[in-house]
Write a protein that binds this DNA or RNA. Structure first.
Lengths: 221, 221
DNA sequence: ACGCTAATGTACGAACCAGTACGTTAGCTA
DNA sequence: TAGCTAACGTACTGGTTCGTACATTAGCGT
């Protein structure tokens, strides 16, 4: 199951704080995403690591703090992906489409992240509030949107009355819904929103939607 | 707290199966929405009704079936609202906007419903799968969208390559996200998506987005 | 008025689960 | 190589929580 990458030590345990912590976080991410906060079992997380429950409390303090740490890491990943984005050489329309597609791709590739965010919302974002790290963590995507939006609006190409935060909400909502509500939507409407065969269709649909909204002809007033 | 609407019977308990069941469903809806499926407490639900835990098991069988019953009722409410919709006298553009606004309003007015759906998605829609009622329950909104879309596409007014299910997903995603992710979005970006002061702005934004997408000028292909 | 059953209440049990007290050892440092 | 401490393991507990066995009664039908 797990790839053998530890130096073949005959029997005794190997001490590696960093690896133990990372392993706990990996398994905890899966377990929380699988069952929700209250449905997740600390014992189950421990059982699926090479260490014991004792270490979860040793390193993280408790179930609440463990979930917070899981969230912090998950948000860190998307922030990193956003930082890779380089659209300064593109015109506003292409740049927005590129940004939307990056969000689309990331959400699709990280369904566990989506589930964690859904779970955190059920609990009123109390873990985000309790985390210093998440408060400080800005959003590179927002900065990018701000720049693109300014350029597009100044040139008269973008006619919509939105700011960066609202546009980010619009893009995220489509990407998020598709992954988060896959189960109920599929059960009720018999359509798998994450079917690979429909992936390009939805990816284009998102871009078309955002561009159409931003560039639509509007009554002057 | 609760309005006094029972016939002032001096002391003894009053037997009313329908009222007892309805009361259990009301409280269970709140409790599940508050804490999630596993976070919800059967004892807590019982304590907040005028009956006892025994009756929950008597009428519903167990926690799982209770949650299923809660979901069935919640979906029933939105289906009913959708059936009130009458847009046959409107042109396609106005009709779509009306439909989008109805979805927007219903989502905003029923945050508990949104939370229940989020919770159900965390659990892979297993309760919907277990419910016969929810399988049979169609979607009036989908029928309406189908009719509007056909009219709009035939007249050449709508240029987008979407069917009713996809358009429903697009509209829902914006309405759903705004309510479902209010907590995390607010915590991270310091913007309350459900702030009443911004309500009209987002309502218009949704309509503009959908209309712009449907009517955008497209390269003929 | 009488009995029958749906409806209701009480008290309890068994399993589960987060968290901890206590004991052990790897491996670095002087 | 002695000793020190961070890293780790085992075994347990106390409270919680779903579910049920058993007892009771309201109120309808006849």
């Amino acid at each position: 199951m797990t790839s053998v990458d530890e130096p073949a030590r005959p029997n005794g345990r190997i001490r590696d704080a960093a690896r133990t912590q990372a392993e706990i976080l990996d398994v905890a991410t899966q377990e929380f995403a699988r069952a929700g906060y209250d449905g997740a079992r600390v014992d189950e997380i421990a059982a699926r690591t090479r260490t014991t429950k004792r270490m979860i409390y040793y390193y993280f303090g408790g179930k609440e703090q463990l979930f917070t740490a899981v969230l912090e890491r998950a948000y860190g990943v998307i922030r990193e992906a956003e930082q890779q984005l380089d659209v300064d050489h593109l015109d506003p329309v292409a740049a927005i489409r590129r940004l939307a597609e990056l969000t689309f791709d990331h959400h699709e590739q990280h369904p566990d992240f989506i589930r964690l965010v859904s779970i955190e919302n059920i609990h009123g974002a109390e873990h985000i509030a309790a985390s210093e790290k998440l408060g400080r963590m800005g959003s590179p995507a927002l900065d990018v949107i701000r720049r693109i939006l300014a350029a597009g609006q100044e040139s008269g190409l973008f006619t919509a009355d939105v700011d960066a935060v609202d546009l980010h909400a619009m893009i995220s909502s489509f990407c998020f819904f598709r992954v988060a509500n896959r189960a109920t939507f599929g059960a009720l409407f018999d359509r798998d929103l994450v079917d690979p065969a429909r992936r390009e269709h939805y990816r284009a649909m998102l871009g078309d939607m955002v561009i159409a909204y931003l560039t639509a002809e509007r009554a002057t007033g």
